[in-house]
């Protein structure tokens, strides 16, 4: 890892200033991706601004039909939260399946979605539930937030502060993990929302998280695993690697989607 200047930010305002003054800054939350990326020299920021100690990014609350989770909340905290489990059990389950227990003690919600790894779990929950991503500069709907491979709608220096997940009628997540990395080979989050019908979000299979409209239409008519049985997803543009080729991933989307619907109950 190349050396850098480390800064600890006490507030969002200070973090913004430190980032602005840096030649090539990077925000550090839990560091479970950034530190590994810097070790591989895939990133070599001149300045690292640690936002892990900012109180505004903490806290979980359930109010007004939504679960609001601070961007700095760890996966372990979400997985163990009775409030999250009571409102959206699928979200607590998803957080509890990220990485391993030690990674979950450090990794954060905001860090995960800001990085937008194509095989990360949280983007599927954000897109599947139609979450709102609040930032230091405003807010983004999940449909517009995840732009492409490792690319989001965030501007330079914009910091995610909270994510609001609308509480659905029911939701489920099913993940086929890569046994080595525990990232999703394919993960599917399904939800029957209160205002927007059924939503189906797929991670791990393509260059970024995406919705499957044909499955959503079928679930709008009948929210059951059987409703998805005739639907096949095209392998065009899906990922192909030594773990799984595109055809296999396309097949897995159907299998995981049905399991997610079954898990939603």
């Amino acid at each position: 890892m190349y050396d850098f200047t480390y800064h600890k930010a006490g507030s969002l305002e200070q973090a913004g200033k430190l980032f602005k003054n840096a030649r090539d800054g990077a925000f550090l939350a839990g560091g479970q991706t950034l530190i590994a990326t810097m070790k591989l020299r895939l990133a070599s920021p001149s300045d690292v601004v640690d936002i892990g100690g900012i109180g505004d990014l903490q806290g979980i609350s359930v109010a007004g039909g939504a679960v609001s989770i601070g961007a700095g909340v760890t996966h372990a905290e979400v997985a163990a939260s009775k409030d999250v489990r009571g409102a959206i059990a699928a979200l607590a389950d998803l957080a509890g399946e990220i990485g391993d227990p030690h990674v979950r003690h450090r990794g954060t919600l905001g860090g995960s979605i800001a990085n937008n790894d194509p095989a990360a779990d949280y983007p599927a929950a954000c897109l599947g539930l139609g979450a709102t991503i609040e930032t230091s500069a405003g807010s983004h709907g999940a449909d517009d937030f995840f732009v492409d491979l490792f690319e989001t709608a965030l501007d330079e220096g914009e910091i995610i502060t909270r994510v609001k997940f609308p509480v659905p009628k029911r939701a489920g997540y099913a993940k086929f993990p890569n046994p080595a990395s525990r990232f999703a080979l394919v993960g599917v989050f399904v939800a029957e929302t209160t205002g927007d019908g059924a939503r189906v979000a797929v991670t791990g299979a393509g260059p970024g998280v995406f919705r499957v409209r044909e499955m959503e239409a079928a679930l709008d008519k009948d929210f059951s695993p059987a409703a998805l049985s005739g639907i096949s997803v095209s392998a065009d543009n899906l990922n192909s690697d030594l773990h799984a080729d595109a055809d296999y991933r396309a097949h897995l989307i159907g299998v995981m989607a049905q399991r997610a619907v079954a898990a939603a109950g």
Binding site: L28, G31, Q32, I35, D50, H102, V103, R106
Partner: peptide, 10 residues
């Protein structure tokens, strides 16, 4: 936590 993926300064 994994001490190989945590900075001392954190």
């Amino acid at each position: 936590v994994k001490a190989c993926t945590t900075l001392a300064l954190q």
